[in-house]
């Protein structure tokens, strides 16, 4: 089972109104038992891509795709009812901001139990037992007490772990996790990542992990895709991406990562100068060209997508060896 492609997305497009093209032809796939990490500048379309896959776009968002399949099922033609049945069951999502998906009016226990009751018709009692078990597995002690609490009574990290546990209630095949560990301290983060790795090993869970933490990416991803201004600008196996980053944005991003113990305190932190352009439908050329040190007139036109051996691909006019000349 492991290795078989579970989620396949090709040419995903999302627009809001007439002026925002949030995702512009993004492609990615996630195999069973593997973790695919999605990284990129704030606002580049990571969360919107995830929401589009789950068919949870905010009102006003329009989705298009050349291919959008989950376990061989074409998600594009699915009714809202059918989608709702899949969500939370075979494919689950952990949202970037836990407060958006936890209902402030219900206790943690009733929200968690509801997931199982809805999808499996499990009794309330059994559902609560399962909820307590999962809270324990995400490292929450006194799960009984936490089940009776309301979301606002939890610390940020506890809420985040509740979200993680809730997503795992039905043993999903695919987990889309949007910044699942950013609210957690590093020791708890390590514990959650080990838990997810365990589920992956035992149950073949496929994970699409959105994160800004390149340390997490390096340690858990099998494959990485880098987004910029709505496009996947580079995608490669993890070791390959870190060893041979090729797109100028990817290279800039990796150079910005502060590493504890190696931080130069009296200097500003490295960043990529400039800001993301406003990208409207009809935008052409490379989205990074205003900030790129290598931009020339070619970059305003059609940019080739290079595919090298080992499935390392990138979207840039530069030849593949420009940064790695022997």
């Amino acid at each position: 089972m492991t290795g078989e492609t579970l989620l396949e997305v090709e040419g995903l497009r999302v627009e809001f109104g007439a002026s925002v093209a949030a995702v512009r032809g993004a492609s990615l796939s996630v195999a069973r038992g593997q973790t695919h990490c999605l990284v990129g500048e704030s606002g580049c379309g990571k969360s919107v891509s995830a929401l589009a896959i789950m068919n949870l776009l905010a009102r006003g968002g329009r989705r298009g795709a050349d291919k959008l399949s989950f376990a061989g099922i074409d998600l594009r033609g699915m009714s809202d009812r059918e989608m709702a049945r899949l969500r939370g069951d075979r494919m689950a999502m952990i949202f970037q901001e836990p407060m958006t998906s936890l209902n402030p009016a219900y206790t943690v226990g009733s929200q968690m139990a509801e997931v199982l009751r809805r999808h499996r018709g499990t009794s309330r009692r059994d559902a609560l037992d399962r909820a307590a078990e999962l809270l324990g597995r995400v490292g929450i002690t006194a799960p009984g007490m936490r089940l009776g609490q309301f979301p606002h009574q939890l610390s940020g990290g506890l809420r985040q772990r509740v979200m993680i546990a809730m997503a795992l209630m039905c043993d999903p095949e695919l987990l889309i996790a949007d910044e699942p560990t950013t609210a957690l301290d590093v020791t708890v983060q390590a514990q959650i990542l080990r838990l997810l790795a365990g589920l992956q090993r035992d149950l073949g869970l496929a994970i699409l992990l959105i994160t800004h933490d390149l340390g997490v990416v390096a340690r858990v991803a099998h494959r990485v895709s880098v987004m910029y201004a709505g496009e996947v600008v580079e995608s490669a196996a993890t070791a390959d991406l870190f060893a041979r980053p090729t797109h100028p944005y990817t290279r800039g991003l990796l150079e910005c990562v502060p590493v504890p113990g190696k931080v130069k305190r009296d200097q500003p932190l490295g960043s990529i100068p400039g800001v993301v352009p406003k990208v409207s439908p009809g935008f052409t050329g490379c989205g990074f060209r205003d900030r790129c040190a290598h931009a020339n007139e070619i970059c305003a036109g059609d940019i080739p997508r290079h595919r090298t051996d080992g499935d390392h691909e990138y979207l840039c006019r530069l030849p593949r060896d420009w940064a790695h000349a022997a």
């Binding site: 983060q189 390590a190 390096a218 340690r219 858990v220 993890t238 070791a239 060893a243 590493v259």
Partner: peptide, 12 residues
């Protein structure tokens, strides 16, 4: 517990 961006080391 800090995860440095070094692939292949796993999660300690």
């Amino acid at each position: 517990s800090v995860l440095t961006p070094e692939p292949g080391l796993g999660v300690p």
